[in-house]
Design a protein around this nucleic acid. Structure first.
Length: 550
RNA sequence: GCGGGCGUAGCUCAGUGGUAGAGCGUUAGCUUCCCAAGCUAAAUGUCGAGGGUUCGAUCCCCUUCGCCCGCUCCA
């Protein structure tokens, strides 16, 4: 499997699908460029998505499986937005962590994930001893017996030194709070797994920071968007007010997002700069469950339609404890990429039921879930909203029912690069075909769906004489005029030219031969079956067009 | 981020303390009436980058960047 991935990566480089960014300077981890063929492939992927979402959407009919008819519209938002957007969306907290590293065993921990049991004096709260541990979410386990014993011993030692009149109590707190409370002097918190020395907390920000305005300073600090979705939410009111859409409706966006991943790996799968195809679907809360299921199934089918095989593609509903902070239901469309271990799948797209979390967050301020599971505005230590919302009314007024409500949101969020990579991996095929002497030769071909293939047709004169090149060039121009991506090749033997096209996934080759001059017919050769059919030269454009739309 | 391995032509790789080769591919010509054909010719590398040791480094040492595997982290 991993070997197959190496072949795919080599082919992508050799044929101009994907290059490493800034390769001549040694490359830059987590960034990738699309070559001449790659850009066509990725454009076709995005175009297929956009057509499915917007261009071909019929808002007068009810699509199969949908609760009702609905509207769809597009949007293209800026990459840099007001910093408050990320505070209210939750990204600022979620993507911004302080981490400590163990100098001994090199483990890394989020400061707020490490719990500290502290023994301190009851009188002046001086910390005497502490032990760290990670609370297991499933078992809820805390301090071990050994650790308790160590605490007892440390307190005993302390009492011996100070005399017996000190009373100690035990409290637990996060490492975060402990470091703030006992910055100096107190016993050092040690590594939860090996008791090694910990580094001071260091800032990790998964969002790319930049400065707005020429003057550097905290004032102008802004972030490159880590997802395209927030641009849609903050424009919700603009779209409703300007486009006459009625709930239910969706807003789609394709664009770049940026995440400063700690470990970009697996080719283009986890990149620091990537392109998303996101759609936010706004509906009445009572209907949201049905819409969630509709979009989940429809998005899965989209990948099937464009050629991902069902045994390497799966739709997986998240377990309740796996759900994001905002979600009441999420499913992933996953693909068994060849770089993953047997049985493992990687995420292509997440379809999330986000409820009213996003719109309300941008109205009221950043929300969190309280003990009863209700969304409430997160408060700071003074009882004020931690991050203030816009204060704008983002509710929707339904003229028919005379009802005013915050729509619920279904979000299918797909990775354009991940989809492109999955289509590349799925397309890669090797087989054995006889050469002109009848000996079996290995053949590599990319079995792209014709709508995704970078080039749809290659036109060849069988040999470079008898007017064949001229006839072929004429057909090439006709195809170009019709807007069909095609190429012309008269170099080398015909077999080699076919193989070249196979390797870049061109579904059809048209060859002008001796018979063309006699009866105006050409051969149309199929990439996958290698079968050739004779069709009239004048029908080629129409034939290709109809096959492309099939 | 840590540990291990690796980095030589477009690709796959060989090789040596005295500034480099093979196969495939690419390009040009001839030949060629259908699946990587034949013949002829040609191009291509600052041996990942920077520094050090040396009379001399692609080779030895250090740093750095990148890739792969594992751990960690993460949607």
């Amino acid at each position: 499997m991993a070997k197959e991935m190496d072949k795919i990566v080599a082919l992508c480089k050799r044929r101009g699908f994907i290059f490493q960014s800034s390769e001549i300077y040694g490359g830059l981890n987590g960034f990738w460029d699309y070559g001449p063929l790659g850009v066509e492939l990725k454009r076709n992927v995005k175009e297929a998505w956009w057509k499915d979402m917007i261009t071909r959407h019929d808002e007068l009919s009810t699509p199969k499986g949908a609760p009702s008819s609905f509207s769809m519209t597009g949007l293209d938002c800026s990459i840099i937005m007001h910093p408050q957007v990320w505070k209210c969306s939750g990204h600022d907290d979620l993507f911004h962590d302080f981490m400590v590293d163990c100098k001994e065993c090199k483990s890394r921990f989020r400061v707020d994930h490490v719990t500290v049991a502290v023994r301190r004096t009851t009188t002046d709260k001086t910390p005497v001893a502490c032990e760290t541990f990670i609370v297991d979410a499933e078992t809820g386990t805390g301090l071990s017996k050994t650790q308790s014993k160590r605490l007892d011993q440390a307190v005993g030692q302390y009492k011996k030194e100070r005399g017996d009149d000190v009373e100690c109590e035990q409290v637990t707190m996060s490492l975060d709070s402990y470091l703030k409370e006992a910055p100096l002097g107190g016993p050092a918190a040690r590594c939860p797994s090996c008791r090694g020395e910990l580094t001071p907390p260091r800032e990790f920000n998964l969002m790319f920071k930049t400065t707005v305005g020429a003057l550097a300073g905290e004032e102008g600090t802004a972030f490159l968007r880590p997802e395209t979705a927030q641009g849609i939410f903050v424009n919700f009111k603009n779209v409703v007010d300007s486009s006459r859409v009625k709930v239910p409706f969706g807003i789609a966006q394709v664009g770049k997002s940026f995440r400063n991943e700690i470990t970009p790996r697996n080719y283009t799968f986890r990149s620091r700069e990537f392109e998303q195809m996101e759609m936010e679907f706004f509906c009445h809360p009572d209907e949201s469950r049905k819409w969630y299921e509709y979009w989940r199934d429809r998005r899965y089918q989209w990948y099937v339609k464009y050629g991902l095989a069902s045994d390497r593609l799966q739709l997986r509903d998240h377990d309740p404890d796996e759900l994001s902070h905002y979600s009441v239901g999420t499913a992933d469309v996953e693909y068994a990429y060849p770089f993953l271990s047997e049985g493992e799948f990687g995420e292509l797209e997440g379809i999330a039921h986000r409820g009213d979390f996003d719109l309300r967050s941008h109205m009221e301020g950043k929300l969190v879930r309280d003990e009863e599971g209700c969304l409430v505005v997160q408060q700071d230590e003074h009882g004020q909203p931690k991050y203030r919302g816009s204060g704008k009314d983002l509710r929707y007024f339904d003229d028919q029912s005379r009802e005013r409500f915050v729509p619920h949101v279904i979000e299918p969020a797909a990775g354009a690069d991940r989809a492109t990579l999955a289509f590349i991996c799925e397309a890669y095929h090797e087989d054995e075909q006889p050469d002109e002497k009848g000996e079996m030769q290995s053949r590599v071909y990319m079995k792209f769906h014709p709508q995704l293939a970078p080039i749809k047709v290659a036109v060849f004169p069988l040999i470079k004489k008898d007017g064949m090149p001229e006839t072929a060039a004429g057909l090439y121009r006709d195809l170009k005029q019709a807007g069909i991506a095609c190429t012309f090749d008269q170099q080398a033997a015909i077999g080699r030219r076919y193989r070249r096209q196979d390797e870049i996934g061109t579904p059809w080759c048209v060859t002008i031969d001796g018979q063309t001059a006699e009866d105006n017919s050409v051969t149309l050769r199929d990439r996958d079956t290698l079968e050739q059919t004779r069709i009239p030269l004048n029908d080629v454009v129409a034939e290709i067009t109809s096959r492309l739309n099939a």
